[in-house]
């Protein structure tokens, strides 16, 4: 199963189990979404449970908040993470704070899905990774799967969650794993063990990281596409890296992070988003706070540059295996 099919399957399972689950967004209804993540849902569940919305992100999130307050469980799609900004006020000022400010009188169980990240020649308007804009807001949860099994399992948990969840989908991984070697032939999820998505309700709890590669020399903290980039970098440099796929940025599995860094004594943080005030800064602080006396070298960040996401220069922007490999070598030498 591709990640797209896994996401669609999660919707299907959630909608079949609970008729309070409603799905809408731009092009989401009849057509099934520009990435087809909601294909067939309107036909199966009817137009009042899966429908097209006007092109107004604030309106999509704002109406979903009202629906959640009523007692429904909206799962909505923002067509690209790059277009979430018109809805940012509704997310940060309203969805995130409703439970707290009303002391639980009203709550906002809501999932806001959006494709994120680059690697598809999407330029500045189809490539951004705004996760840190959401982890910075109290009251939100932020989830970012890296494979079909996790995408389905985490989405099911997000739908079941009593609070608003930002669900970021690395679009470069929709159809297959991608390690940053853009000149190599595409690989698909077919025949990949992580594409072997179990049927039914196989929820994966939020807040649990997973180790995708055991290693002794250095801990790599990554999520989304960067998990595969880090794996490639470890193979290519021969550095025995332990790679942690965070999966959920908030809540964050700090125990898994510190256990690994205390073991290896070294840490490299990788993300595609811009560097300054990025989520890597938070990770670095936490590693410093919890593992300082175990560290044998300064922690290194490998990230997108602090520029708008370029079009023609995509691969110079994208933190690929070469840059991650350099960091692995450097952290071993330090």
């Amino acid at each position: 199963m591709t990640m797209i099919e896994a996401i669609r399957d999660a919707h299907d399972v959630a909608m079949a189990a609970d008729d309070r689950v409603v799905v809408f967004g731009e092009d989401v209804g009849f057509f099934g979404g520009v990435f087809r993540c909601t294909a067939g849902l309107q036909e199966k569940y009817g137009k009042s449970r899966c429908f097209d919305a006007p092109i107004n992100e604030s309106g999509i999130v704002g109406t979903a908040i009202g629906m959640a307050a009523y007692g429904l469980k909206p799962v909505i799609e923002i067509q690209f993470a790059d277009y979430v900004y018109p809805a940012y006020d509704q997310i940060a000022s309203e969805a995130a704070r409703l439970r707290h400010r009303s002391n639980g009188d009203f709550t906002c169980p809501l999932v806001i899905r959006m494709p994120t990240g680059g690697g598809i020649f999407g330029g500045q308007t189809h490539s951004q990774s705004p996760e840190a804009l959401f982890t910075h807001v109290s009251g939100l949860k932020v989830v970012l799967p890296s494979n079909p099994i996790d995408a389905k399992g985490l989405l099911l948990s997000a739908v079941a969650d009593p609070d608003p969840v930002i669900f970021l989908e690395p679009k470069r991984l929709y159809n297959g794993p991608f390690d940053g070697h853009h000149d190599k032939p595409l690989t698909s999820w077919k025949n990949h063990p992580l594409g072997d998505v179990p049927d039914g309700d196989n929820a994966i709890p939020l807040g649990k990281a997973t180790i995708t590669r055991d290693g002794a020399d250095v801990t790599v903290l990554a999520y989304g596409t960067m998990v595969y980039v880090a794996e490639a970098a470890a193979e290519e440099t021969g550095v025995d890296a332990e790679i942690i796929d965070l999966r959920s940025l908030l809540p964050l599995d700090l125990d898994a992070i510190s256990a690994s860094v205390r073991k290896t004594g070294r840490c490299v943080i990788v993300h595609e988003a811009t560097r300054t005030s990025g989520f890597g800064a938070e990770l670095m602080s936490l590693v410093q706070e919890t593992c300082f006396y175990h560290l044998e070298a300064p922690v290194i960040r490998v990230t997108g540059w602090d520029t708008p996401y370029p079009h023609a220069q995509e691969w110079e922007y994208f933190p690929g295996p070469a840059r991650v490999g350099e960091a692995l070598k450097k952290v071993m030498e330090d």
Partner: peptide
């Protein structure tokens, strides 16, 4: 203002 519309839509959906 827009949340009220969503709440009303939910009533109709339900």
């Amino acid at each position: 203002f827009v949340q009220s519309v969503g709440w009303a839509m939910a009533s109709a959906i339900s």
